[in-house]
Write a protein that binds this DNA or RNA. Sequence first.
DNA 1: TGTTTATCATTCATCTATGAACGAGACGGT
DNA 2: ACCGTCTCGTTCATAGATGAATGATAAACA
Lengths: 132, 132
Amino acid sequence: MTFLMLGAVHEMEANLEAALSRIGLSLSKFRTLSHLAEAKEPVPLGALADRCSCVRSNMTQLVDRLEADRLVERVSDPGDRRSVLATLTPEGWERHAEGARILAEMEGQLFARLEEPDRAALTRLVQLLKSS
Amino acid sequence: MTFLMLGAVHEMEANLEAALSRIGLSLSKFRTLSHLAEAKEPVPLGALADRCSCVRSNMTQLVDRLEADRLVERVSDPGDRRSVLATLTPEGWERHAEGARILAEMEGQLFARLEEPDRAALTRLVQLLKSS
DNA sequence: TGTTTATCATTCATCTATGAACGAGACGGT
DNA sequence: ACCGTCTCGTTCATAGATGAATGATAAACA
């Protein structure tokens, strides 16, 4: 059962990854852009790592790559000189919008196979399993 | 919804990974041992990669590490000199059995929170989502 | 005030995964 | 028998993730 769920989700992930790669994004990059877009203001890397459920060292590298892609910029925090903030560039906003369209499309295709009561049931069950 | 499912499964994965690490196994290593144990005979690396749903180059490295752990051995295929077979060492069999106990325990804890109709529903829904 | 403690991001080593390029070997058709 | 093609595993470059160690800075407190 565990391997079955892992397999199903890995399939979803691979599909989404493939779709996002058409616009030069990975799932991790897109998730990072999403949280930055949602925040609507510069976010410290540590907080960003928390929202993305990853460790800080990972976020450091991720922002390195996003900065190389010119989708994100590092800015310094005037109130705390230890802190480094990340913010979306105009191109980052655009790319995130494209990614969001792709995600919506994939979700539509995936859940089209489920009737309505099943969609609700799945949501409920997944929430039950999360946060043990 | 997609990020919710991804999050729930990543949590499961992280828990299992942490539990397996107590006996020096990763989830990938354990999955590989499982398929070898199930086969009960040497398996070509390509076939093993297919069963583990990963690419061959990944299986090459995985078997490198498992061989370094003395859990797996490479043997040559008399019928095809291109082929390399992997087989469990006695220690590999033991370690797999320990891992299987840990997996069973984790599954028990996880699904203890679900009543019976929910368990069946979850299984059905996950199978529906798999193999688009 | 000065010192300890905690927090921030980064670097490094390691593991897992992919895809492209490669060399060795099998195999089908001519 | 030979040639092209396909399949095998490996290597390499790269992406992504973790945890441990580090240096800079803030905060707490004696």
